[in-house]
Design a binder for these strands. Structure first.
Lengths: 185, 185
DNA sequence: GCTATCATGTAACTAGTTACATGATTAC
DNA sequence: GTAATCATGTAACTAGTTACATGATAGC
């Protein structure tokens, strides 16, 4: 009964391939500061995927006893896992780019808000974008020192986020201008 | 047992408020060319939300018999529905902007791909972005003629998508340049 | 004594997806 | 004949979220 798995499974598989021999706990943190920008995975889900990948025989789990910290399990791809990852990467990415913005959803109904409320909504959005931009700048900065071939794509992925955030910040200015122009004071 | 509803419910509520007296079928199409850009709602889900909103007493459903087409049901907000919508709009949008990009996920693991594959991946992404940009341009064009206050925010929301798509197209160029520079021929 | 880090889970839920069903009318 | 438009659903699933549990060690 080999149904095909969701992209999240391959995300975890790819992560293990990138940092082999890490524990679930480590993978959660690594995912949190890399994948999270464009493919967030919660801790619970990641552990569930690890179990599933192990069951499939795509990764092996090794028990590691530590004296200072609790027991941990480390993961590595099997030959089957490498094949599965390669197959998935060769598959065309479907248009499955789901984007849901709580901000835009509310903004779309802004004609039912008082002008002041629209202002704070935009201000909140700007703050969130700035925080995101700063995060991405830090990531890019850290990755730009490394010359590893794998880090190159990570850096470009982060750059994608940075360009997006910057454009959206410019949009916030634009929107504020337009809203002020029509209704002065 | 009044649990609070997900944003999607309010999205539908807001839509009905925007186009009162429309049927589920009409709402599906309206959602498809407005909300879909930043808050996609499938047909099945929309009908389910209509049932839920009716149950809550936030909207009323009216049966309309037609001689040429099948029976339809049209929807309108009640006083309670208007209050619920206003309350939700007054609520700060949580950072809940979930973004999942199948493209970036694969691109992040591009070090495991052959260079040719990376090229086609980028080319496919560019094509998708161009299509999206054209869609948004058409929407903005249509909305810019209208002077209704509600259309203004719709236009700005579409502009947000346009700015995003444009920045990402520029990123594709940037990424291709960078990948070609390091590995000529 | 408190908080943070390391480390792995269970339980319960629900939002959202996909596939399918039905059937009339109009236009090519 | 066949495809598109109008119109509303049901059924079945699963991916992902949220809240909670546990427990050791290390540093302040």
């Amino acid at each position: 009964v080999a149904t095909n798995l969701p992209d999240t499974s391959y995300a975890v598989l790819g992560l293990i391939d990138k940092v082999p021999g890490s524990s679930g706990y480590e993978l959660v943190t690594v995912a949190g500061r890399s994948l999270a920008q464009f493919w967030p995975i919660s801790q619970t889900l990641l552990y569930r995927e690890l179990a599933r990948l192990t069951e499939r025989g795509w990764v092996t789990a090794t028990r590691v006893d530590q004296d200072t910290a609790p027991v941990k399990w480390t993961y590595r791809l099997t030959a089957g896992g490498r094949r599965a990852l390669a197959d998935w990467l060769a598959t065309s990415a479907p248009p499955a780019s789901s984007f849901r913005s709580g901000f835009l959803l509310r903004f779309f109904f802004a004609h039912r808000m008082r002008p002041r409320r629209v202002q704070t909504l935009l201000a909140d959005y700007r703050r969130a974008l700035q925080a995101q931009r700063d995060d991405l700048l830090a990531i890019i900065d850290k990755l730009s020192t490394s010359t590893a071939p794998a880090a190159r794509f990570g850096r470009l992925a982060a750059l994608h986020g940075l360009r997006t955030a910057t454009a959206r910040l410019a949009w916030v200015d634009e929107a504020e201008d337009e809203l002020n122009r029509e209704r002065p004071r």
